[in-house]
Design a binder for these strands. Sequence first.
DNA 1: TTGTACGCGTTATCAT
DNA 2: ATGATAACGCGTACAA
Lengths: 337, 337
Amino acid sequence: MALTIYDISKKAGVSIATVSRVLNGSDSVKAATKEKVLRVIEEYDYKPNAYARGMGLHSLRTIGILCADSSDLYLAKAVYFLERELHASGYESLLCCTGYDLTDRKNYIQLILSKKVDSLILVGSHYVSGKEEENEYIREAAKQVPVMLLNASYNCPNVYSTLCNDQAATFEATSSLIRAGIDDLLYLYDSNSYSGTKKLQGYKEAMKRHKLPDPSSLIHYYGGRTDQIEAITDFIQGIADKGITFHGIVASDDSLAVGAVKYAKKNGLRIPQDLAIIGYNNSMLTACTVPEITSVDNRLENLTLRLVQTLLGVLAGEEMPAQSVFSGKLIQRGTTP
Amino acid sequence: MALTIYDISKKAGVSIATVSRVLNGSDSVKAATKEKVLRVIEEYDYKPNAYARGMGLHSLRTIGILCADSSDLYLAKAVYFLERELHASGYESLLCCTGYDLTDRKNYIQLILSKKVDSLILVGSHYVSGKEEENEYIREAAKQVPVMLLNASYNCPNVYSTLCNDQAATFEATSSLIRAGIDDLLYLYDSNSYSGTKKLQGYKEAMKRHKLPDPSSLIHYYGGRTDQIEAITDFIQGIADKGITFHGIVASDDSLAVGAVKYAKKNGLRIPQDLAIIGYNNSMLTACTVPEITSVDNRLENLTLRLVQTLLGVLAGEEMPAQSVFSGKLIQRGTTP
DNA sequence: TTGTACGCGTTATCAT
DNA sequence: ATGATAACGCGTACAA
């Protein structure tokens, strides 16, 4: 059996209260006593029981990180950064891959809350819906612990949003192509999430601002998996085969842009002369093609850093901004003129 | 304040013992009583306190998943599959990105064990070293909880290994190129981990078996980051610039293979006629290049599935195999003849 | 089948 | 500065 605080107190010749004080860094304990207790703790390699500790402190210093799919290139990076930051601050991370289904998500959150996490981090904008009733579960969760949103925004007490201004970034990306003289721009996207919607708005706004005709026929939703590059290529081919002409593509994700590059190659189109392409996320995928893909960097590491700082502040009882917005940045590479 | 088992027992007009029995699915409770208690639980949405429960059961049904870097394409997939399987079996996953440093890993494991996880899953072969003294921490951990190894093997009580026969797979991949008439085969690798060593052995074995000259000058270690494709391309260029000639490349990772494809393009080499390439892991990267990359599939999902099954068996007190080995499979695509 | 009472290992609140 | 002791909420012998 593992040692308890009683064992240590006996061996050190003090009471359990004193041991507890030493353990929790109380200042009201004589240096000599502290030294003595620490030596015993060291000698027997005593570790306080986590469950019992959780009961007393009402916390195990654990944060629930929820994401739809942690094998997604972008989400995986987000999870990685978050875990690293949290660990550095003495918190552990309970990872939950909830999938994209609403009911599954709700159940998962219920479960995780019952495990007494100190906070919930929802990674990715899929967690915020356009329909208010579908966000009810966020309000509910926020009644129990602070809820942190990465790449989404939701206005509600105890909910804190950290995100990139995807709309502005997409507006800028689209505009840069238009300024280069390309105005038949295809818009490809794969998600109707919060940020998915914002990106689309950015594209539309740019088309409108430059007085281009209604782009409805140029906007296409790819509903398949983003790691199926071949399916994406076929998808774009299908659009072209319908007789829709385009000399530029703005994509909501780098994988869609990779599909676009492969489409161009298959059809003997020169990049960027015949077809210019812009991706999103500035992932390693941008470096896999020839030429390399121009992409929007939404500074994920920055976002995660800020999110954790905000969270720590909230947990410490400080007043924190409910929303932190950063700017994206277009990284120029070979697929744009 | 949240409801306790006492509140529920009062409202249901029974003792806490009965509530506890209902909660834990004991059979010795009258159907009517059970029904009554369940209704109260439902009505007040009562959730047992996790800490108190952990104290009694000596478990919070939580597994520690350790990996060096969960943003790595391959590790991320492994973590995703593991979490999914564990969740389906009623276990939560504590994610720990330990990095590649030994001391950091040790500390992290100590910490995580003190949080009372039911088991440790070490994802990726980096956790097993060739030097026995560096594996001491695994032995220590295994004294406390079962330790599961994914893609590595270590012989020690309470340690269970689930892996792909990377040596045989690499042997087969290398041999297939030799049979196609290419015998100046470069071997690129990026890790000296357990499986890294095995893969290299598979390559060497194939060269030897086909009576090819000592390949020492053809074996090259890339020490940079695998998500830096450009650095990989430069690395290969450097090898060629040294005057080493090769018409085929066997790589220990798909990202190295992507770098090889880009190297070929830069130098106007035809693929596969002038340069044949085989990657490893069969990741989405194989679909990003033109032509697509032939790669070894080590059936990750299978491995994770088996690992979790083994773990559940061990936790249930059943006798389980200490080692489960699966075969890899070469997926033919455009970079090989 | 059900209830009582105790143990689990801490933290926190009083005294001293 | 330190010690005694009461929570904390649940599981589980043991008793009924």
